[in-house]
Amino acid sequence: MTLSIRIIPCLDVTDGRVVKGVNFTNLVDAGDPVEMAKVYGAEGCDELTFLDISASSDDRETTLDVVRRTAEQVFIPLTVGGGIRSVSDVDRLLRAGADKVSINTAAITRPELIAEIADRFGSQVLVLSVDARRARTESGFEVTTHGGRTGTGIDALEWTARACALGAGEVLLNSMDADGTRAGYDIGMITAVRAVTNVPLIASGGAGGLEDFAAAIDAGANALLAASVFHFGVHRIADVKRYLSARGYPIREGAAH
């Protein structure tokens, strides 16, 4: 009996549509997040993440509806991130059917938000999303905002340790340098963050070859998130799982039937 490594596809949603790099051939409507969630669920993904990249509050209402409709049909954990600023934002998402929320910029602006959410709903709902890049901070890793374009000067390791002490129950570590490159996860960054926290760690950014997934696990990741390699069909979820399983990594067998 072993805890499985989780494989998590990430869907970027705005105005009710998946927007970033989608090239599904087996779907009538490739941009419908609910349909994509069902396909990934049937293929055996272990969790799903929606990243709400909406610009307006109307769009956010639409995303809530997407979460609602997905939760009606896909009985695996759903995480929703993007634009969460307050306890009431979290409450709305959980009521819509999200199991976890990920917060990023709002926590940097006002770290007490982490404790407020954890106190109200428990640490297990709160994923700290850390968008980090290599920079001249003390540890060599800096927290960024705005999709990696804006540096904060905050050291990524110090920030992660502090946020976990405040109540974050999981860390989603996005490498802004590796994001979209398909050149592999930032292994040095995963190793460094693993050393400062004992909550589950999700690696994100850079997944390309199948060996990249294994390398991230070896560095201490408990879950692996990817977007484009799944959306473009470079790898199916089952390919990743088969590869890892053959090398002795614990994975959950079998998709939904």
Partner: peptide, 13 residues
């Protein structure tokens, strides 16, 4: 356990 919470899929006997 070194990593908590116990989060994810695990087999049940």
């Amino acid at each position: 356990a070194p990593v908590l919470p116990h989060m994810g899929w695990n087999n049940v006997k």
